[in-house]
């Protein structure tokens, strides 16, 4: 019995890349969505929530059609940038980033919205600009929400199945992820290997969640242990 580690490494790579990209994209996006009065706000929030509601296979199907060399978009990307997105690692990464968007965006928006507006305003009255206010005042204040976003996105991307099946093409080392390998082993009745893949996915998800709760609860513990109220 041999267990190929490549699908696990690939899932890990995809999860890390998507989590980093989404953290960078979602912080300013969530800040804008939580502070803006723009009419675009509702449209953007609805669109960003969509991957959470519709089945991943549907989303994968649309990406397959959109990025196909026969579609105008796919054709444009391939002729101008010489990049093919269907059945490639980077195409899969982009699609998974879109699918993971609500997992990162929603907790960060909730974090920003839970802060009193006076924090941002106080920073502005102290001569700071929006960027400094965001990174030095608001982000440290929503650290638990940010951690939830990071962990949920990581777990979701690591175990994503439907979209990878639709868009990946099971190319070893490029698009054959751990959840697809698990499916293949079950289809071939290789339950021992399937157990190993399923176990790794479940265990890594559990460890990530445990880490999240430890990190988020440790703040409170430190507060209650080291701080005493001074009257």
């Amino acid at each position: 019995m041999t267990v190929d580690l490549l699908p696990m490494v690939l899932s890990l790579k995809l999860a890390v890349i998507c989590t980093i990209v989404l953290t960078i994209v979602c912080i300013p996006l969530a800040y804008w969505l939580s502070t803006s009065d723009s009419y675009l706000k509702m449209l953007m929030r609805s669109a960003a929530m969509l991957p959470l509601i519709i089945p991943p296979s549907v989303l994968g199907f649309y990406f397959l059609i959109l990025w196909s060399p026969f579609s105008p978009v796919g054709h444009f990307i391939e002729t101008v940038f010489h990049i093919r997105l269907v059945f490639t690692f980077w195409g899969l990464s982009m699609a998974l980033a879109v699918a993971g968007l609500p997992f990162m965006l929603n907790p960060i928006i909730a974090g920003f919205e839970s802060l009193p507006p006076s924090l941002r305003e106080a920073s502005l009255t102290l001569g700071k600009n929006e960027f400094e206010t965001l990174y030095r005042v608001l982000l440290p204040s929503i650290r638990p929400s940010l951690l939830i976003g990071i962990v949920m996105t990581f777990i979701h991307t690591f175990g994503e199945f439907g979209m990878v099946l639709m868009l990946g093409g099971k190319i070893p080392g490029k698009t054959l992820t751990a959840s697809i390998a698990l499916y293949d082993h079950v289809e071939s009745l290789e339950y021992t290997q399937a157990h190993i893949y399923a176990g790794v996915i479940t265990f890594s998800a559990f460890i990530s969640l445990l880490l999240l709760f430890i990190l988020n609860s440790r703040n409170d513990k430190i507060r209650s242990l080291f701080l005493t109220r001074k009257e």
């Binding site: 924090l119 502005l124 102290l126 001569g127």
Partner: peptide, 20 residues
């Protein structure tokens, strides 16, 4: 812009930065 007005503003809810 607010940051260029050189004012001191004290808010009703204090608005102290909780992470600092």
């Amino acid at each position: 812009p607010v940051r260029k007005r050189n004012i001191g503003f004290v808010f009703q809810d204090y608005a102290l930065f909780p992470s600092m």
